[in-house]
Computed example of a mutant assay.
Amino acid sequence: MKSIYSMAAAVGLGFSVLAAPATAEEDWKLASAKRTPDVGATFDQEFANAVAGASHGLGKIEVQFVGNEQEMVQQVLRGRLDFGVTSPLALAAAMPDIAVLNVPYLWISRKERDFVYSHHLMEPLAAMFEEKGLVLLSVQEAGYNGVFCKMNCSDPVALKGQKTRVSPSASGRMFWESIGTIPVQLPLSDVWPALEQGLVVAGDLPIGFYSTTPGAAVAQHFVYTDHIHSPWLYFVNKRVWDKIPAETQAAIRKAAPTPFSTTDRFLADQDQRAQAFTEKGGTLYKLTDEQRAKWAALVTPNIEKFIGTMSDRVKTVYEAIKKGKTEFAAQR
């Protein structure tokens, strides 16, 4: 897999050629919850620019902000939006099995994660999307979640019995229940007023994204628990894909990027956003190994039981992940 931009361009080109005269220009929508100054918005715009450039004027993609990610996914499924990009946490309502990607404390290193995705996860992920009428185009970086709070919550004891925002992902709910909180499921757009009104006191997101949201002015404590990793998943409505000629589809797949090719840029931006968070009055808590282990000790004993409650496919994918982790360890 090489370039998502060439691949996306081919999508725009392939459909434009089929659906309109050569002089017309197709207007596609790429829906995302990211917006400037979040670096994810930069990646999304690069995707859109690449599609327009490679289509030689036959098509273009406009990035459209959609704050409610669950609704955005539904709009792409219905064909009202053409492309989408989000994390498994937002896809979980439509694709419950994808919660396997957000199992807490799943990866021991970036290299391990990249190896397992490349050798064991891309095929089952593609199948999940296919079953829902979507085509997975690229797997990129959305970072590790930390915990944001309205008070110092560097020790998980501070959150016991508190109401916390949880995404539709079963993995996220398992994490918060293990910590001893009362999870309240909310779409992302409702989190910020819920924090202001005291309906919840905490939640979890990557620092780079969280620092750009209205919540950062209300809940000014952020703990680097790094408990859940999320990829950033680009996808397209399958009806669009199926109209592309087979040879163009083959070229698209050949041109697709290797997984997580945006990670270095993403991590550099995370550091900048973290500093901006502190400059606006926020407090960061970078945990020692012992402190982080205290969080993990509450969660990891529940992981195997959690997997046991999931579908047979989740169990199969989780076993493939464990096999990949074992292969990676053997190589080292």
Rank of each mutant, 00 (worst) to 15 (best):
K163G: 07
D155A: 13
D114V: 06
K132F: 01
L159T: 09
V139Y: 00
H119D: 12
Q162H: 13
E123G: 01
L137Y: 11
M151Q: 15
L159G: 04
S118P: 01
P156Q: 13
D114I: 10
F148V: 03
P156S: 13
L136Y: 08
F115Y: 15
L125P: 05
Q140M: 13
F148P: 04
K160R: 15
L137S: 11
K160Q: 15
N145S: 06
R113L: 06
G161K: 14
P156H: 14
P124D: 00
V116R: 04
Y117A: 01
F115W: 12
F129W: 01
K150I: 06
M151N: 11
D155V: 04
S154C: 03
H120D: 00
G161Y: 12
D114R: 08
E123A: 14
K160M: 13
K150G: 12
L136K: 05
P156W: 08
C153S: 09
Q162G: 10
S118R: 15
L159Q: 05
Q162L: 14
V139D: 05
Y144W: 11
L137E: 12
H119T: 15
T164S: 14
K132R: 02
L137V: 08
G133I: 00
S118D: 14
L134K: 07
L159P: 03
Q140N: 14
L137I: 04
V157H: 13
K160F: 09
V147F: 02
E141C: 11
F148Q: 04
K160P: 11
M122G: 02
C153K: 03
E141V: 08
P124R: 02
R113H: 05
N152Y: 02
Q140K: 11
Q140R: 13
A142L: 00
F129D: 09
L136T: 01
D155W: 12
V139P: 13
A142M: 05
L137K: 08
L136M: 09
S118F: 10
K160N: 15
K160I: 11
G146Q: 00
A142I: 02
Y117C: 07
S154R: 14
A142S: 12
M151T: 11
M122C: 09
M128N: 02
F148H: 03
G146L: 09
V135C: 06
V157R: 15
F115G: 00
S118W: 05
A127S: 07
R165L: 12
V157D: 14
Y144F: 10
N152L: 04
L121S: 05
R113V: 08
K132I: 02
S154W: 03
L137N: 10
V147G: 00
G133K: 01
V139Q: 03
Y117G: 04
D114F: 06
V139L: 10
S138K: 10
K132M: 08
V147K: 04
K132Q: 01
V116N: 02
A126T: 10
P156L: 09
D155P: 13
V135M: 06
L136N: 09
G161N: 14
A126F: 02
C149L: 03
R113D: 01
D155E: 15
Y117M: 06
L159C: 03
S154F: 01
A142D: 15
C149T: 04
K132C: 06
V139S: 08
L159S: 11
K132S: 03
S118L: 14
